[in-house]
């Protein structure tokens, strides 16, 4: 049915009033996608306990957002929650899992390790400095580990992006409202004018190209000895 959706703009645009129809279809489709994000539980380290296990537990309930159905198989998951540091050995497998996910797919990097390598940013022989060297990340949730409430805030930010930034007119292109989410206590005035322009310039992401650009994992071949059964 995704094929049907791709053809709809071509069918409806020429009709007068077709844009309104496409906008309303957009609204419904984005509402549905944002309200039923099924996470792929990619928990590698301590963040997994907060992001995946504590948020699924009764005190903070991920089911309220409709995201309790955590599928272990990437084919059925929408959202890859990277909870934990990515070791170089894991980077290849993470890339594999990302490639196996079905469109539309979102990635949320939670915790310092997934954003930038975290505690291991300075000296480490084995940690990848940030998951966005490997997969294109949509939302970053800082913290070490972030509270479940911080994760929910990140989820709501992602929902905002899905509702505002995607349209069936341009499948595979996502507009990230970069300046719509700022760390708490920071206003738009703090971002000087030229920086604001700079940030808005590369706002629109072509997901397919972005995913193909992360070749870091491919360079990891050299770390895996030949003929090993690590893969």
């Amino acid at each position: 049915m995704g094929i049907v959706l791709d053809r709809l703009p071509g069918i409806f645009e020429p009709i007068p009033g077709g844009s309104v129809l496409i906008t309303s279809i957009d609204a419904i489709v984005n509402w549905a996608r944002s309200n039923s994000l099924w996470p792929l539980a990619f928990g590698t380290k301590c963040c997994a306990i907060e992001m995946l296990m504590a948020t699924g537990a009764p005190h903070q309930d991920l089911a309220r957002f409709g995201a309790e159905v955590a599928r272990q198989t990437p084919r059925q998951a929408d959202l890859m929650v990277i909870a934990g540091a990515i070791v170089k050995k894991m980077a290849l497998r993470m890339r594999l899992l990302y490639d196996q996910m079905a469109e539309p797919r979102y990635v949320m990097a939670t915790g310092s390790c997934a954003i930038s390598g975290g505690p291991f940013m300075y000296y480490s022989y084995s940690i990848v400095r940030g998951a966005d060297e490997i997969v294109p990340v949509d939302v970053y949730v800082p913290g070490c580990p972030p509270r479940p409430e911080a994760f929910f805030y990140g989820l709501m930010t992602l929902q905002k992006m899905i509702r505002q930034g995607e349209t069936i007119r341009k499948p595979g292109i996502r507009r990230k409202p970069v300046l719509a989410a700022l760390p708490q206590g920071i206003t738009m005035d703090d971002l000087r004018v030229e920086q604001r322009e700079w940030l808005q310039r590369d706002n629109t992401v072509d997901m397919a190209k972005a995913a193909a650009q992360k070749t870091w994992a491919a360079r990891l071949e050299q770390w895996v000895p030949k003929n090993s059964n690590n893969l």
């Binding site: 940030g130 939302v139 409430e149 719509a180 989410a181 760390p183």
Partner: peptide, 15 residues
């Protein structure tokens, strides 16, 4: 205690 810091772009976390 301000924890609501999720961003779309990593550059906004360095300030």
């Amino acid at each position: 205690h301000s924890f609501e810091n999720a961003v779309y772009d990593r550059r906004l976390l360095v300030y």
